[in-house]
Design a protein around this nucleic acid. Sequence first.
DNA 1: GTGATCCCATAGAACGTCTAGGGGTGTGGC
DNA 2: GCCACACCCCTAGACGTTCTATGGGATCAC
Lengths: 107, 107
Amino acid sequence: MLLGTLDMLILRTLVMGPAHGHTIAHAIERTSDEVLQIEQGSLYPALHRLEDRGWVSSYWGLSENNRKARFYRLTAAGRKQLRAETRRWRTLVEAIGRILGDTSIAE
Amino acid sequence: MLLGTLDMLILRTLVMGPAHGHTIAHAIERTSDEVLQIEQGSLYPALHRLEDRGWVSSYWGLSENNRKARFYRLTAAGRKQLRAETRRWRTLVEAIGRILGDTSIAE
DNA sequence: GTGATCCCATAGAACGTCTAGGGGTGTGGC
DNA sequence: GCCACACCCCTAGACGTTCTATGGGATCAC
């Protein structure tokens, strides 16, 4: 019901420009104040999945540390997908918020 | 990463008092303005899971429509679990919100 | 007595994620 | 020169939740 959120986070991160896996993971962890932890075993399958679906494209390059790294770039389709997923996410959060309620009964 | 949200919603629904599966599902769907759809194939496994973990207890009774129905009641442990899951949920939503940003770049 | 609605349930597939590995390469200290 | 360490990529297999598909029984309206 709420799977696939990682995909959205990756796509969102790539809006800032192309990046490689290691960087993407750190960016997400840092921006979330370490709340979100991105395991490598989740990250790379996700990147490959996104590429298979045409939402990102990739190329080999050199990292800031002079190491071989695969960079990912957002495609037009990926941008569209991001918009759709973001909308859906906000809708879901709002809906769940209505159920949890504003009160502190369950808080 | 975000699985198990259904459990939280069920527990939250049971705060209002004991209920049976059919009612729980409808309550969640109605409160969410039909955004959330609860499939029976997700609902019943979830209820059994919650009972196995001691977060709800169940008993047979009669529904408002005079039909045999299994009612679920929140336990003390379930209440505690709900508080924990709700806190975690809010933390996650906030973290993801920081990544999505307030701007409309990706909106 | 037929159809619709209510109610419970499960098997099996699907999917994303995690655990637990494996490997290669540049950098800095000794 | 060598070693430790951080950087960087990758995958197999297990796991947990959810969905699809299906089954059955019981009550009510007509």
